[in-house]
């Protein structure tokens, strides 16, 4: 069952960057890729739960701001140590200048 929820405006995120979004007490990270596509993942790193949105986005990679653990934010795939668990991703759609996340 889908549960589309507005996360932010498309202009709230710079190109190749990420912002934190909290919805109903849950932290998400919402990304804008270099190609202006939007993606969403859980907000916390799977390693030691730091907020990912203060990390650096390069291409399709988000780096945890604490220990440099890397994920492909388009798939959630962890890219080596110290990451042991992939990151949960969420479907995203853009409508009328807003980014929506399917919280499922």
């Amino acid at each position: 069952m889908s549960n589309w929820t507005r996360a932010c405006g498309t202009d709230d995120i710079d190109n190749e960057d990420v912002i934190p979004v909290a919805i109903d007490g849950h932290d998400y990270a919402v990304y804008r890729s270099p190609d202006d596509d939007y993606f969403a993942t859980d907000g916390h790193c799977t390693h030691e739960a730091f907020l990912l949105a203060e990390g650096l986005v390069m291409d399709n990679i988000i780096e945890c701001p604490k220990h440099n653990g890397r994920f492909d934010y388009t798939t959630g795939e962890g890219k080596g140590a110290p990451i042991c668990e992939d990151l949960r991703t969420y479907p995203v759609k853009v409508e009328g200048g807003s980014v929506y996340i399917d919280l499922g």
């Binding site: 730091f50 203060e54 990390g55 650096l56 701001p65």
Partner: peptide, 11 residues
């Protein structure tokens, strides 16, 4: 505060 300078230090 927290990891507020992380992005820039990484750069």
């Amino acid at each position: 505060p927290g990891t507020s300078t992380a992005k820039d230090i990484r750069v």
